[in-house]
Nucleic acid binder design. Structure first.
Lengths: 210, 210
DNA sequence: TCACTAATGCAAGCGTCACTTGCTTTTATA
DNA sequence: TATAAAAGCAAGTGACGCTTGCATTAGTGA
């Protein structure tokens, strides 16, 4: 019933007739809507934004939105993913600790922005199938990238195995989300260092220092 | 405008006239509604439950709900808090590790239930002032209790200071919430041990063992 | 350049649901 | 037993997600 094709994959190429027309206008409209959504998400929570507002800001008819995305949630998911897709550099900085700090502070920076909050919010509150699909692929991808960091550390001889990569990454990122969503509190500037040191050395290790 | 008094505190006792009448019927209605809400929350997500359903199941008029709680969200918050208030034992088990495992596995058990999921969900997705107030006091209370555990560990000589108590607790519980909400995945039976060992010994400590 | 049709606009409407209001009825409680 | 708080009842409001049928615009292949 819901045919969501945010990317222009002509899935029903079964019979000869179905032609898509992704040139000029379609792409323009799509971008206008996603931009409008992003701009609104920078000022309000997804729940408080209506499709009518997005359509108006994008200079597009509301109907178009529903025809292209199917549901409001699918649109937000698309918009937020577009925003979050860019960064997340994972450069080899020479040590597990600095590698992790780099990633975690990047995520923290994003979560401090309204768009970042909205992405976390949608991830937690979304109910659509679209969102469901996405959760799996999104986090699977992140965990895979995190694993690379830990495997580099194994190669360096810092740790013996990377088998705690996923749980450690979950703890790092999960704490950030927990702060932002469940507590609705802020992230300190040095939250990345704090967390990484805790997860790497543990309470015993960290607490014995001072 | 919204006068929510889930507990029967006669806040407007300023002038002589305002009388509350908390006897029999009021308490009965309140309990019926909270029970109905809890029963529905065991089968569906808060977003999918309507006040009409709750009212019907409780054998109460919908108007009564709005007069007593003001908003649907406030009602759910009240219901879920009632459910979560009971357990959370924090017995001194003799070591920091077992103390933490006890608490974390208790929380994990709760989060595996529909009510537990709903509480986490409401905590993350709720927008009401009611929910906002609650977030602060709820977590402040939990953190205080967690701190006690760490202070016992200091007294035992296990660690030097309890200053990482809150962050460690946030990492433990945050990871559980992150699993349940952001990933919508499950919690393994031994998730508490895994997490506690990670947070206590760190990746370095745990990874070097095997 | 022109015909074809995908993509969009437009207008009207549907259904649900949170929430309100004015009035009547029930029932604690002094 | 009288008073008024608490609950019932009925009707309604407004917002909003989403749909539909038809007219209009504009890519695209010939």
């Amino acid at each position: 019933m819901k045919e969501i094709q945010s990317n222009c994959t002509p899935k029903n190429a079964q019979e000869s007739t179905a032609q898509t027309r992704p040139g000029g206008r379609t792409a323009r409209t799509r971008r206008a809507v996603l931009d409008a959504a992003a701009r609104l998400l920078a000022e309000a929570s997804p729940a408080d934004i209506t499709c009518a507002q997005i359509a108006a800001l994008a200079g597009v008819n509301e109907t178009t939105i529903y025809r292209k995305w199917g549901t409001k949630e699918a649109l937000f998911t698309d918009a937020l993913l577009t925003l979050s897709a860019e960064p997340l550099v994972m450069i080899d900085t020479g040590s597990l600790r600095t590698d992790l700090i780099q990633v975690v502070s990047g995520v923290a920076d994003f979560l401090r922005t309204p768009a970042g909050f909205s992405l976390a919010y949608m991830g937690a509150a979304g109910e659509d199938e679209t969102t469901g699909e996405l959760r799996k692929t999104f986090w699977a991808d992140r965990f895979a990238k995190a694993k690379v960091i830990f495997e580099r550390a194994v190669a360096r001889g810092e740790i013996n195995s990377a088998k705690h990569a996923t749980l450690a990454y979950e703890a790092l990122i999960g704490t950030l989300h927990f702060r932002i969503l469940a507590q609705r509190s802020t992230l300190e500037d040095d939250i990345a260092e704090q967390l990484v040191d805790l997860i790497l050395c543990g309470v015993f290790g960290v607490a014995h220092r001072s």
